[in-house]
Amino acid sequence: MTFSYKIFITSLVLVTVSGCGMIPGSHFEGIDSGDQTRNLEQDLDNVNIQIIDASLIAHQKQQRKKPKPMSSNAGLNTRHYQYKLGVGDVLTIGVWDHPELTIPAAVQRTAEFDGFRVQEDGTITYAYAPNIPAAGKTVTELHKELVTRLSKVIEKPQVDIKVVGFRSQKTYITGEVTQPGVYPITQIPLTLIDALNQAGGLSEAADWRTVTFTRGDNTEVIQLDKFYAQGDISQNRLLQDGDIVHVNRNDAQKVFVLGDVKKTGTVMLNRYGLNLAEALSDSGGLNENTADANGIFVLRKRNYQQTGILADVYQLHARNIASLVLAEQFELQPHDIVYVTSAPLARWNRVISLLLPSVATLDNVDGLNN
């Protein structure tokens, strides 16, 4: 991934250099935004051009608040969850009023050390009840079986069974969490979100948007940000033995700031997002003497096969204070390209035309990494 992104960045830098070389740093004043949009659309039929204004900001906010459809496992129900015993689990078993059937607690020894372990053949052996099948049964089912057997020698036995060692089932939490490791499945239902919390939460370098969930031969991407930001409980999972939850690094969560700014390069998104004003500020701001405040563009790739559109291009007119409010409210997405031009209006479309192959390159990079 690192090598591919180096190629991508190199191509963008070359575009920036070539654009600055062929386009002088002059400015057009008082030009109608509708004319700007039409001029661009005439030459860029596969690009969707939009002006960053109050209506666009309102539309994007509405889209973020729009309810998301829940999947079939929405409303994860753990009320009827029951732990099933497995090989290696350790039990303590006691019978009321029959101390001879209960192993006394010893100093410097734990209940797990003295308990009854589920053997390799899936059985346990207790007094008057040898070779009881235990693996695959719940504690309630094992209790019923043991009471039935002890009833042959003890009148109305009162049996108490507890699991003191959960050894048979485990899940794996890997990647960018505070405490990656192996976590046991116990009598308390363990969900994906619970497991991440038990692992100390996400690290500073974690991709907070998605995690990878693997069960057997099937792997799916869990939209973690939808769970936290939108309460989409369909993203949660009840973990089972052998499940793997992997948290990726945040390396791909970045935008590219190019053109007539003081410091071109990448700006990282954090878990709280990144707006256009922050991206420009982190890049040192516009070059006051040469940058055209009407020529701030955001290029965002689209799925061309599905939409017939290569990219969305958003333009900000930043010549007045009100535009700064719009910049603060325009949320960027990973892999957005922010480009500040010093070109005259008639040739801005040529700059965007040069940038579009870089958007296509980014599509190819994503395809190789997926």
Rank of each mutant, 00 (worst) to 15 (best):
G122T: 04
A322C: 00
Y339M: 10
N248P: 02
Y304T: 14
S72G: 07
Q198D: 10
D336E: 08
V15K: 02
G115R: 00
G201N: 08
Q329H: 12
Q187E: 15
G75Q: 01
N364E: 13
S323I: 05
D225Y: 10
H335R: 14
G136Q: 08
G231L: 01
A252E: 14
K6T: 13
I7K: 11
Y172R: 08
L146K: 05
T148S: 12
P69K: 08
I103W: 00
W208C: 00
G181E: 09
T174N: 11
G273M: 11
V325M: 10
V255R: 04
L146F: 03
D260E: 15
I352A: 03
S4I: 02
I321V: 13
R215F: 07
A346V: 14
F8Y: 14
E204F: 04
A360D: 06
L345G: 07
T2H: 08
K66I: 03
L269Y: 05
E288L: 04
W96I: 00
K137A: 09
L324M: 15
F256N: 06
W96G: 01
R300V: 10
A311K: 04
P189T: 06
T290M: 01
L202M: 13
T138L: 09
Q82P: 00
Q198M: 08
D89L: 07
V351M: 09
D207Q: 12
F8A: 12
T341Y: 01
T110I: 00
I57A: 12
F213Q: 05
G231K: 05
M268F: 10
L310P: 00
L316E: 12
D260A: 15
N250L: 10
R79Y: 02
Y83T: 09
A322N: 09
L362S: 12
T210S: 08
F166H: 15
I185P: 01
F3T: 14
T191Q: 05
T191P: 00
D336P: 03
T178E: 12
N236R: 04
G285H: 11
A229N: 12
V17Q: 15
V159K: 11
D53L: 03
A111W: 00
G284L: 11
T2D: 13
P99C: 03
L202F: 13
L316A: 04
F256S: 15
Q230F: 04
D260S: 14
T138R: 09
Y183R: 04
L202E: 02
Q50D: 08
D363V: 08
R38W: 02
A129K: 03
P157F: 07
D207G: 07
P99Y: 01
Q179W: 05
S33R: 08
S4K: 02
